[in-house]
């Protein structure tokens, strides 16, 4: 085993890349849960976004359009969930699980003709000047645009929830939907918008897997990333910056175990592959989770 083969700078840089898909999916789910909805279909929306993004990119030749298509695909699938749970008042947990199963099968169907094709490479966007700083530059400022977009979305969601009127209303709806209704806010409308935002983010996260991380289409390529995103939302106590931390923690363990595998560590590969998930479980057990939004996962109907 040769640990010196692991380059700490490359390791940290690839950590940010590895964390981006779950980061995107988790920030979307965070907004959904702050609005009081539990959507367990993140995995399904991610893989739908992955296949939509891949198909659009191959056919249109533009990864940018591909990501847009992924967001739209994810949001549309989320809208199905939204209509079922918010308008038809189906159970959120059961509907979310069904959405995951449906998404996995639906994505496999859509992607049949695309197995084995390689996605075009997305060029990096080094930030001028900043990327030339030694050590910090290559770690933080030499990535593809989606990595920056992910961090920008975190910052945007944080500011939205904290400073904007719409963010206040969204939190109010998630905290006590009966009171929000009594004050005249449109609970269902707010929740549908949040659900669609969550779907779009999950779609982006999925497309990042199929277009950047892998980068090709295979069935089941999300491999549980959507579930990790759900866990990270709880880990983060529904707060955006802690969510960034959680995603990096998971991404870090993922990258580290890959590097250890490559370095030929004398541990069976299966244990190393388990490590990120074990770490997530451990951290979730050790952390005292914060207070969940008051109306989380409850159906809202104006007459009750």
């Amino acid at each position: 085993m040769d640990l010196s083969a692991i380059n700490p700078i490359l390791l940290l840089a690839s950590l940010m890349v590895a964390a981006t898909p779950i980061l995107l999916a988790a920030i979307g789910e965070l907004v959904v849960e702050r609005a009081g909805v539990l959507n367990l279909g993140v995995e399904g929306m991610m893989i739908t976004g992955a296949v939509c993004g891949f198909i659009v990119t191959i056919n249109a030749g533009s990864p940018l359009l591909g990501f847009a298509g992924a967001a739209i695909g994810g949001a549309l699938l989320a809208l199905v969930f939204g209509v079922l749970t918010q308008v038809l008042l189906s159970n959120q947990v059961a509907t979310g699980l069904a959405l995951t199963l449906f998404g996995l099968g639906f994505a496999a169907l859509l992607g049949q003709g695309y197995i084995g094709i390689k996605a075009p490479v997305i060029p990096k966007w080094p930030v001028p000047v900043l990327s030339d700083i030694p050590v910090i530059g290559p770690i933080l400022f030499n990535h593809d645009p989606v990595v920056y977009l992910g961090i920008a979305i975190i910052a945007g969601v944080w500011a939205f929830l904290r400073y904007s009127r719409a963010g206040l209303i969204l939190r109010a709806v998630g905290e006590n939907h009966d009171a929000a209704h009594a004050l005249g806010y449109h609970v269902i409308r707010v929740r549908l918008l949040a659900i669609m935002f969550g779907g779009a983010c999950a779609g982006l996260g999925g497309a990042y897997l199929s277009l950047v991380r892998v980068p090709q289409w295979t069935e089941g390529l999300t491999a549980g990333a959507g579930w990790i995103a759900l866990a990270i939302v709880v880990f983060a106590s529904w707060r955006p910056w802690r969510l960034l931390l959680g995603a990096y923690l998971f991404g870090g363990v993922t990258v580290l175990q890959l590097n250890l595998q490559a370095a030929g560590m004398a541990i069976p590969v299966a244990y190393l592959s388990m490590a990120p998930y074990l770490a997530t479980i451990l951290v979730l057990v050790m952390m005292r989770a914060g207070r969940a939004p008051g109306s989380l996962a409850q159906s809202f109907h104006a007459s009750r």
Partner: peptide
């Protein structure tokens, strides 16, 4: 002013 207060505990 509502009978069952229309308040949000976490805010």
């Amino acid at each position: 002013v509502f009978q069952h207060f229309s308040l949000f505990d976490a805010m």
